[in-house]
């Protein structure tokens, strides 16, 4: 009896191990596939008219074609370039500014409200203001996205410095480090994890603002322009394809920053 029950007990476990490998590999694909299946189902059931929602296959095929033969790639390139320029401006000014503000608590206190206020103000609400000052130029889109990045990065870097472990600063001091050395060897590193949170948020925000700016600040290039144009002249397939490309760009930027983050800040959370 003992012998008879054992294989039965073991069977589910075996089945589980046999299943585990392929399922484990496939898990991340399940969500996207389910999404495409749902999309297809909505199309097949004619819940939505085809002029408003093309099939996933038609959209993806159009996207590839537009990227390879059409102007989609150059629009994507313009959007990415604007995003990176805005990000670079915000980061290059924001990190040193944040670190400087953070290392002087009194100075930071005095500007904290301003930074918090503008950080909490939707950047899109400032678009008309930027149009007044910069006109509807290319620089405008970069300026407003850069401004948003600057606020986010400054805020996070300042917080990183202010929340540096007191013990490490004391340790450096008791070892004879000058205040410049404490700053360079301890404060800067202590602030890095938080600075990176700022940079990652910054690049995402830069993309969001650039795409919005491309929609509303007279533009003849860029994914934002393409999306709004697709909607207005009812080229919906182009619109969906542009949205997906924008999504892919956002995702890739995030992945790149996450990789840099884990490699550069290897001690984080340890």
């Amino acid at each position: 009896m003992n012998v008879a029950t054992r294989p039965a007990e073991r069977a589910p476990a075996l089945a589980a191990t046999r299943l585990r490998l392929p399922v484990g590999v496939l898990l991340p694909v399940i969500g996207p596939l389910a999404f495409l299946a749902l999309w297809q189902a909505v199309c097949s059931a004619h819940v939505v008219r085809e002029v408003l929602l093309p099939t996933p296959f038609a959209t993806l095929a159009y996207m590839v074609d537009a990227l390879v033969h059409g102007t989609m790639a150059s629009d994507a390139f313009v959007t990415v370039t604007r995003t990176l320029l805005a990000f670079a401006f915000g980061a290059i000014v924001g990190v040193p500014l944040g670190v400087a503000l953070g290392s002087n608590a009194r100075v930071y206190r005095s500007v904290e409200f301003l930074i918090d206020f503008f950080r909490s103000t939707p950047a899109s609400a400032l678009i008309p203001l930027f149009i007044l000052f910069f006109g509807i130029s290319d620089a405008n889109k970069i300026a407003i996205a850069g401004f948003s990045v600057l606020l986010i990065v400054t805020f996070n870097s300042a917080y990183g410095v202010m929340n540096a472990r007191k013990t490490r600063i004391l340790a450096a001091k008791v070892m004879g480090a000058s205040s410049v050395q404490v700053f360079r060897d301890v404060l800067l590193y202590e602030s890095l994890p938080q600075t990176f949170v700022g940079l990652r948020n910054g690049i995402s925000t830069a993309l969001v603002i650039v795409v919005v700016a491309e929609m509303f600040i007279g533009s003849d290039q860029g994914l934002g322009h393409r999306i709004i144009e697709g909607e207005q002249v009812l080229q919906v397939t182009d619109m969906y394809a542009s949205i997906i490309v924008a999504g892919i760009i956002g995702y890739l930027l995030n992945v790149v920053f996450m990789l840099i983050d884990t490699r550069l800040i290897h001690w984080s959370g340890k």
């Binding site: 013990t167 490490r168 340790a171 301890v186 590193y189 001690w267």
Partner: peptide
């Protein structure tokens, strides 16, 4: 030498 080595050594 601090009580908490984790918070006094430089992990970077």
């Amino acid at each position: 030498v601090f009580q908490n080595y984790r918070e006094s050594l430089f992990p970077w």
